[in-house]
């Protein structure tokens, strides 16, 4: 849920940002507004979110969203900005402009990069969930680590760490599988 909305919004905002006129893109203030919020790590946002919307389903989604959004957003924007010039020009010759250009050219052309962002976003989202559970969870693996720490159950903590790794790996692999299915035209080999 959190990841899905992060992916959709990340792509949409990344595309729209690349569609801004050159004058706005070059503007320092606008750049700052887009770039600066990426720097506080997702974990730093957790206390904020908990203060603002409390503990629960929704705040969990929000935390995942914060973790996953920025890698997707950045990769979508950079993908759209790096469309080869011959392809851009060809699209212009076909009189494809504006939103139609973003949808029909920028988006498919940057899908490979977007997927890279999604993979990173998934990891970040997953890490944020664990971190959030450690800070204020009532359940979950992060919470379990904290609990085992208090009870000095090192064995159980190792199991928790292992499970976190396993689930993270499964998420990552499923993104790779999805990418292979959706982007058969990519030459790159994903293993």
């Amino acid at each position: 849920m959190g990841v899905a909305s992060a992916v959709l919004l990340g792509i949409a905002f990344g595309m729209l940002r690349s569609g801004l006129p050159q004058a706005l893109k070059g503007n320092r203030l606008i750049k700052f507004l887009f770039e600066a919020p990426k720097f506080p790590p997702p974990i730093a946002w957790i206390p904020f979110v908990i203060l603002l919307i409390g503990v629960g389903e929704f705040s969990a989604y929000t935390i995942v969203f914060i973790g996953a959004f920025s890698p997707v957003f950045t990769s979508a924007y950079e993908g759209a900005e790096s469309v080869p010039v011959a392809i851009r020009r060809t699209a212009r010759s076909m009189e494809i402009t504006g939103l139609s250009y973003l949808w029909r050219i920028s988006l498919p052309a940057s899908l490979p990069q977007i997927f890279t962002g999604v993979r990173v976003g998934l990891s970040m989202g997953w890490m944020s969930v664990i971190a959030a559970e450690m800070i204020s969870g009532q359940s979950g693996l992060g919470y379990s680590i904290q609990l085992n720490r208090l009870n000095m159950q090192y064995g159980m903590m190792t199991v928790d760490m292992f499970l976190i790794g396993l689930i993270g790996f499964a998420l990552f692999e499923s993104a790779v599988l999805l990418q292979r299915k959706l982007l058969p035209w990519r030459e790159e080999i994903l293993t």
């Binding site: 080869p84 060809t90 498919p108 035209w185």
Partner: peptide
């Protein structure tokens, strides 16, 4: 003013790889 009136096939590849 690019448009359908004059179409250039570029020296480098300009095919859309996703189609």
């Amino acid at each position: 003013r690019p448009g359908r009136h004059v179409f250039l096939i570029h020296q480098e590849s300009d095919l859309f790889p996703w189609l």
